[in-house]
Simulated scan of single mutants.
Amino acid sequence: MDVYYTYNYATAGWMILQAFPLIASPTMMVTMLSPEVRETTPLEAYFSRSLGLCIITLGVLSVLLSGSIPLTSSFSDPASGLEDPVAPYALPTMMVTATYHGAVAFFCYMMWNDTGIFAFAIPTLIGTALAAVGVWCVLFASSDGKLSRKTGADKRTSGFPFKNVEADKKRTGKKAL
């Protein structure tokens, strides 16, 4: 499986895992956040469940917009060079989710630093890892490269600071020194 699709499925899984306690038990969430144990108000329960459903929606959208589940009935010709109609929003979705993971990781780190509660370290580490993989995918996995049909090598590479003697031999037809 490609790193890009793994990132999108991990994003969706992490978001669903975060949303489940918000939907299942708003009372537990209020009890963990409040210094005194009390019953939740209807407004707190509404906001907790709404936030949980919103997080699940974002996770599902990240998978749908990644192109791993085709939403069209036709497929494009990859040799045509046109934009992929199956996943035209794949890169923007990945940038938004990577930013989301980075922001949540930063927030959890600040909470961990401020309160000293180790429970904030887990989302800090997972969010940082997902943000790093997302940034890596944006930087390196989003371009197709210019691959040679004959050799399979990337045409954008240069010979600096080392020369490619084998390629020079094939190009000029001469023997290397």
Rank of each mutant, 00 (worst) to 15 (best):
Glu83Leu: 09
Thr93Gln: 01
Ser66Ala: 07
Ala98Tyr: 01
Gly116Glu: 10
Ser148His: 11
Ile117Arg: 15
Tyr89Glu: 05
Ser62Ile: 00
Lys163Val: 14
Val3Pro: 01
Pro42Met: 09
Arg49Leu: 05
Pro92Met: 15
Ile122Arg: 08
Glu44Phe: 04
Trp112Tyr: 15
Asp144Phe: 07
Val138Asp: 01
Phe160Asp: 08
Met94Thr: 05
Ala10Gly: 10
Cys54Gln: 12
Phe162Gln: 14
Thr57Asn: 06
Ile122Glu: 09
Gly173Val: 04
Phe118Arg: 14
Ser158Tyr: 11
Ile69Gln: 07
Ala103Gly: 11
Ala98Cys: 07
Glu44Val: 05
Met95Thr: 01
Asp84Gln: 04
Thr40Tyr: 04
Lys155His: 09
Thr99Asn: 04
Pro85Val: 02
Asn113Leu: 13
Ile126Tyr: 05
Ser143Glu: 12
Val3Phe: 03
Arg149Ile: 08
Gly67Ile: 01
Thr27Asn: 07
Lys174Gly: 10
Arg149Gly: 10
Ala176Arg: 12
Ser80Phe: 13
Leu17Met: 15
Asp154Met: 09
Glu39Arg: 14
Val63Cys: 00
Cys108His: 06
Gln18Gly: 15
Val135Glu: 03
Tyr7Ala: 08
Leu64Lys: 03
Tyr9Leu: 13
Met111Tyr: 03
Leu147His: 14
Val135Ala: 11
Thr6Tyr: 12
Met15Phe: 10
Thr151Ala: 02
Pro161His: 03
Ile69Arg: 07
Tyr7Val: 14
Asp154Glu: 11
Ile55Lys: 00
Pro26His: 06
Ile16His: 08
Leu71Asp: 08
Ala79Trp: 06
Ala24Ser: 13
Thr6Cys: 14
Thr57Pro: 09
Thr11Ser: 09
Thr99Met: 05
Glu166Lys: 15
His101Trp: 03
Met94Asp: 00
Gly59Tyr: 00
Ala141Trp: 03
Phe20Lys: 04
Phe107Cys: 08
Lys170Thr: 14
Gly127Leu: 02
Ile126Leu: 10
Asp84Leu: 04
Ser158Asp: 12
Gly152Thr: 02
Arg156Ala: 14
Ser142Met: 09
Ser73Pro: 12
Met111Phe: 04
Thr115Arg: 01
Pro123Phe: 03
Gly52Glu: 01
Ser73Phe: 08
Arg171Leu: 14
Leu82Ser: 07
Pro88Thr: 00
Ala176Leu: 11
Arg156Gln: 11
Glu39Trp: 07
Ser74Met: 14
Pro161Glu: 05
Thr57Phe: 09
Ala12His: 02
Ala79Val: 09
Ala24Gln: 12
Ser143Trp: 10
Asp77Arg: 06
Ala87Gly: 08
Gly152Ala: 12
Ile56Arg: 00
Ala45Cys: 06
Ile16Arg: 04
Ala87Trp: 03
